[in-house]
């Protein structure tokens, strides 16, 4: 399971204030802390309060500070192509673009950008019409992304398809469709594309959020989820992933399996 730490995001108060005050400490703190807690990537998002024209500079600042504090690649998260490219320009190592949808005009921007910067890319199984309800419709959009990546020479191991989980208190019927989508994504190409998910989405405005996130993550892993943007500060989530790795035969069992999962 490739964990992408969600914490460096202007949606969170401390990061929002850090951006406003040009104070790198909270960014560095979360980069280091998420690194120590099994994150393989750091998601970096300026958040909704930064003005569009300021986003490239803020992204650049966030990426630089995060990578100075922790030896991890970033998952550069924005709806603004200029902000993403600004992040990619200063990024060390192999970045991940978060994200393109299946709209052709967006794929035409982001997928060549991934090729240019040798970055991985997240493809959302949605388009301007919104998030499809059924697995079949999600898969049709995922296929569009697979084809476009292939045409641009992006290997399938660098494509992460997100079937898009919605909060279970407003869109309860989506859960089973997402699980079915995960299974089918693995049949779209050989080698198969990878999969990812914004996990905390599943529990927005619900009670017992950690439990819902953790349960859905494990169910998704059993259906082919390779990666998740998630809260790595949650101990129980990490332990559950360690156990799932064993049960899915991704890691060879030993009595210290919780400890070995956390060791780098």
């Amino acid at each position: 399971m490739i964990l992408i730490g969600e914490r460096i995001n202007g949606m969170f108060k401390d990061i929002r204030e850090a951006i406003q005050n040009k104070d790198p400490e909270p960014v560095r703190y979360w980069a280091k802390r998420q690194y120590e807690r099994c994150a393989a990537y750091l998601d970096i998002n300026t958040g909704p309060t930064v003005e569009k024209e300021d986003q490239p500079a803020v992204m650049e600042w966030l990426v630089k500070n995060a990578q100075e504090a922790a030896p991890l690649p970033c998952c550069i998260d924005s709806t603004n192509p200029d902000a993403i490219e600004a992040g990619l320009k200063v990024h060390q190592g192999k970045a991940m673009i978060n994200s393109t949808t299946a709209d052709q005009w967006k794929m035409d921007i982001y997928i060549p950008m991934a090729a240019k910067y040798n970055a991985a890319i997240i493809g959302l199984a949605m388009n301007e019409k919104g998030v499809p309800k059924s697995a079949t419709d999600r898969i049709a959009l995922a296929m569009e992304i697979v084809v476009n990546c292939d045409m641009n020479g992006i290997p399938m191991e660098d494509l992460y398809i997100d079937p898009l989980m919605l909060p279970c208190n407003v869109a309860q019927e989506h859960g089973v469709e997402v699980l079915e989508t995960l299974r089918q994504i693995k049949t779209l190409a050989d080698p198969a594309p990878r999969t990812t998910m914004g996990l905390s989405n599943s529990s927005q405005r619900c009670t017992n959020r950690h439990l819902i996130n953790r349960t859905f993550l494990i169910m998704s892993m059993a259906n082919g989820l390779d990666s998740a943007i998630s809260d790595v500060d949650d101990d129980e989530l990490l332990d559950a992933v360690a156990a799932a790795n064993i049960l899915l035969n991704k890691e060879i069992y030993c009595d210290s399996f919780l400890k070995t999962f956390r060791a780098r």
């Binding site: 060879i252 069992y253 030993c254 009595d255 210290s256 400890k259 070995t260």
Partner: peptide, 10 residues
């Protein structure tokens, strides 16, 4: 036993 082997190495 691969599991015991890994544990002993740890």
């Amino acid at each position: 036993d691969i599991n015991l082997s890994k544990q002993l190495n740890i």
